[in-house]
Design a protein around this nucleic acid. Sequence first.
RNA 1: GCUGAUAUGGCUCAGUAGGUAGAGCGCUACCUUGGUAAGGUAGAGGUCACGGGUUCGAAUCCCGUUAUCAGCUCCA
Length: 636
Amino acid sequence: MIKVSLKDGVVKEYNAGITVLEIAKDISEGLARNACCGIVNGKTEDLRFAVNEDSSVEICTFDSPEGKRAFRHTASHVMAQAIKRLYPETKFAIGPSIDDGFYYDFDREKAFTHEELEEIEKEMKKIVKEDIPLERFELPRAEAIKFMEEKEEPYKVELIRDLPEDAVISFYKQGDFTDLCAGPHLMSTKPLKAFKLMSVAGAYWRGNEKNKMLSRIYGTAYTKAADLDAYITMLEEAKKRDHRKLGKELKLFALLDEGPGFPFFLPNGMIIKNTLIEYWREIHKKAGYVEISTPIILSRALWENSGHWDHYKDNMYTTIIDEQDYAVKPMNCPGGMLVYKQEMHSYRDLPLRVGELGLVHRHEKSGALHGLMRVRCFTQDDAHIFMTQEQIRDEIKGVVNLIDSVYKLFGFKYHVELSTRPENSMGSDGAWEMATEGLRGALEDMGVKYVVNEGDGAFYGPKIDFHLEDSIGRTWQCGTIQLDMQMPERFDLEYIDKDGTKKRPVMIHRVCFGSIERFIGILIEHFAGMFPTWLAPVQVKVLPISEKFIEYAKSVEAKLEGAGIRAALDNRDEKIGFKIREARNERVPYMVIVGEKDLEANKVSLRSRAIGEEGQFDLSDVISRISDEIKTRKTC
RNA sequence: GCUGAUAUGGCUCAGUAGGUAGAGCGCUACCUUGGUAAGGUAGAGGUCACGGGUUCGAAUCCCGUUAUCAGCUCCA
C-alpha cells in the first residue's frame, strides 16, 4: 500500500498494483504538499513524491539524490526525537542531510559519549518500530516564534527570525517531537530500518568560529541493510588505502613530533618525488617554460612591497638577521618578480613562462594539519607567466590543457572551481571584474564545466582551482591558475612594446600538482600504493630461490639496473614464498625469480603484480617490456 | 585555533579493581638450501609522550603541556 499525504492532513491510501503515474495524477489533483514513502506489494518501495509550488509532481526514488535527502533528513529528525526523549535538557540547532548521511547539532553541557550514542541508537530503533507518522503544518511568523519560545529552543527562534519576510514557516511533527523544517520527509518513521550513528564532533553554531561550539552527531541511513553494510565496508577499505598508513608501510615519508606539519621524505618517497619532478621538467620544457630558483628567506621590505606582510603575516614564519626582519617565503611570487626585473623585457619575450619548484612554509593552524594533504612546508610546482593583455586567454587555455594532460596521465577525475573576490583583498573592482571575466571566458571557450566559488579567490586575484578526490571522497585543491593584478603593479614590472613605449605585463601564477606533497598523498590513495611502474620506488625485485643462485641473481640485477630499471635483490636466507609475499606487500610491479631451472635455461621466471605468475622469459624480453612501460609512463 | 578522543618496545596492539610491563611482526644469531602469499630455535630491545600532583606505591587516578585522530573554522 502507498500512502500519500494530501492537503489539510488528509492521507490517501492506494492499493498494490497501482502505477506510479496514476498516483502522480492523483497527487497533482489533490495538491499534496508532502513527500511519502509507501509499501507496494508488501515491500518498501523507494518512491518519493513531491509537489512543487506550481503543482507539478516530482517522482523520484531513494536512489536519487532528492530521495536520499528526504530519507536521511527524516533519520536526522528521528535522532533528534530520541535525544529529546533521553536528554530533554538538550537544545536543538540544525540537522540536515549530507552526501553520505546526516547530522544534527545540539547544545548540551557535555558532549555526547560513545555509550550515549549507543543509547540514542536504541531509542531511534524504538521510534522506527513505533511507526510514527510525520505531519506537516505551517504557522505565521509571530506564532512560529512563540511556539519555539515556549519550547525553550533559542536556536530555532533565531532561525525563524532570520527567515525571509515571505517565507513559508513549516514544521514537522512526529509524535512527541516537533521541529522547524522545510521538508520534505517520509510519511512515517517506519522505513528507517538501516541507520548508524557514526561519530560525535564539535561544530560552531552557524559555522562561525566566534559562535558557541555545539555538539554534532553524524549518522547515515540507507533503505536496505545491505547498502548500509556496503557503505561501512567501503569506509573500512578506504582506511586501508589512507596515504598516512601506506606512507608508513611503504616507507615513503614520516611525520614526526619533532616537526609537526613538516614531512620527512624517506628514500622510497624521494624516488617518487624526484620522478614526478623529472616528468614535470620534461613537459614544461616542451611547453616553453624556463626554470628558476629563488631564496627561501627574504627581507621584510620585499614582503611589505608584495602585500604579504599586511595580508598574510599570521601565516608566515619570520626571523631576524643582523637586526633586520626577514620572512620565510609562503609563496614564490615575490622572488619571481625580482627575477623578471633583472633585465629589460621586450614584447618579443612575451609570453614569458618562468617555472620554479619552490619550497614554501606556511603556518597552518595545528588542527588543520592532515598527513601530506595539509602541511606547513611543501614544494609548489609553481610558474609565473608574464604576458600582454591579448595573450591572456590563450595562455590560460594552455595551462588548463597542461593540467588536464597531467591529471589524465594518472587517471584522475577532477572538478574545476572558479573562485571570485574575497573580503580581505587588494585592487579595484574594475580590475577584479576584468580578471574574473578573463578566467571565466577561457573556461567557457574550452567548454570546461566549473562551479563558482564566491569569495574564495586569493587576496591578489581570482583563480581557477582543480580539485582531486582522496580515498574517502574528500576533495583537495591541487592545480590552480590565478590571475594576479597586484604584483606587476607593486613591483613596477614593464616591457617595451612595438611602438617603443613601456607597458605593464599581465601575470598569472599557476601550479599543476599544486603541492608535490599533497599530490603524492592523492597518488598513494588513488593507486592504493600500487604505483605505475614508472613511479614505483622499486620496479623489479630479483628473488633467488636459494643461496646457490645469488650470483646469477646479482648478474640479473646488474643487467636490469644497466637498462635503467630500479631493481632490488632480496638475497636473504628465506623461502621463495616468503620473499614473494613481502614483495607483494611492498606492491612491487614485477618480480624476477631465479633458480636452478632458470640458470640452466639462462632465463628468468617472471611474476607481475597485475597478472601473477607469467612463466619463463629471456631477461632481454623482460627488460624491453618493463623499459617500454617506464618510457611511455603506462598507468596500469 | 575550537570540541571530543587517543598517546605502551622500530611497527600493530594486549595490559581487565593502582602493587615497578606482555604478544605478534620486525631486528640479531644459529639451524634449514627451500620453486610462486608466512620453515624452525634462541636472543636483544620499553624510565608506558612530556611535566607536575594524589598515594606506602601510578602505564593505570587528577591537572597542565605537546603530538596525533575525527569534525568545525581556516586553506593565498
